[in-house]
């Protein structure tokens, strides 16, 4: 067996580089905070049609953290499946991309306090999906590497799960009839539907499968960085800034209004 010894050698090389570094110092030294954010998922992170810059709720939270650290914010566009690899490979310092906290993910990355909460929902053609039992036998489109993909595959074995790179692509497959429903966070789906030119044909199915919390993802073992991120989040809530950010994207005046039923600090 040659491989293990090779792996061992590579590991020693790898860990030597990591052990001493503290990411917070690195960020301050570089003057840049690299945050992985969605580029195709309004209102969390999306490409603004006019400025061609990534903006959204997650981006504003990321900006608040960068401001707190007094460094420049640099956004790394990501799709759901690339979030953990980007973090683990050190291509991003933080993930702010509607990132759901799970036990499995906690083995690879650390999470901040949750700053958002939602549940798994579905978009289907109007009147075609009203209760979870109907999912059996359907083909359902999801995003690669999401909790929704894993949950459906585990709990709904009679549903065929087809995974795409991003939610809008899954929606295109729904339009083409390749899948009969798509599944994601309710908040994300509501916004996607609100932005769809052909929204009259589709609806959000009236049931929610799970309650999920979204937080900032951090590299493992960066205690000081985690502390700063948590402090920033709590300050955002205390100053009322968090509510303002929420209202800007989900408030009564927006395309897909959604009442705020979660405050930062409510869940750990």
């Amino acid at each position: 067996m040659k491989t293990p010894s090779l792996l061992l050698a590579l590991t020693l090389l790898g860990t030597a580089g990591h052990a001493l570094a503290d990411r917070l110092d690195d960020i301050k030294k570089a003057g840049v905070l690299r945050v992985a954010a969605f580029d195709s998922n309004p209102p969390f992170g999306f490409l603004d049609a006019k400025t061609h810059q990534i903006s959204g709720l997650d981006v504003e939270v990321a900006q608040a953290i960068a401001s707190k650290l007094k460094v420049k914010l640099e956004l790394v566009p990501t799709n759901p499946a690339n979030r953990i690899p980007l973090l683990v490979a050190g291509k991003a310092d933080l993930v702010a991309a509607n990132f759901t906290v799970t036990e499995e993910r906690k083995k690879q990355v650390d999470f901040s306090l949750p700053y958002f909460a939602s549940g798994q929902q579905f978009i289907a053609r109007k009147g075609s999906l009203s209760k979870p039992e109907q999912l059996a036998g359907l083909r359902v489109g999801v995003d690669k590497g999401t909790t929704q993909e894993i949950y459906l595959r585990e709990k709904y074995s009679k549903t065929t799960v087809v995974a795409y790179d991003d939610t809008p692509l899954a929606f295109t497959a729904l339009r083409n009839g390749n899948v009969q429903a798509i599944s994601q966070d309710g908040s994300k789906l509501a916004a996607l539907l609100a932005n769809a030119p052909d929204k009259a044909k589709y609806e959000l199915a009236p049931f929610t499968l799970t309650r999920e919390y979204q937080a900032i993802g951090l590299p493992k073992g960066e205690a000081r960085l985690t502390k700063v991120v948590n402090e920033t989040l709590l300050e955002l809530e205390k100053s009322g800034q968090a509510h303002k950010i929420y209202d800007r994207w989900f408030g009564p005046g927006t395309k897909a209004p959604l009442p705020r039923d979660f405050k930062i600090g409510d869940a750990v």
């Binding site: 580029d39 999306f46 490409l47 566009p77 690339n82 790179d165 809008p168 030119p197």
Partner: peptide, 23 residues
């Protein structure tokens, strides 16, 4: 495209995702 480097195809999928109905 698969690793999110903003070359031509990637940028085009970003636009496709925003416009939604003109793939």
């Amino acid at each position: 495209y698969v690793v999110g480097v903003a070359e031509f195809t990637f940028v085009a999928t970003q636009i496709n995702n925003r416009e939604q109905v003109y793939p």
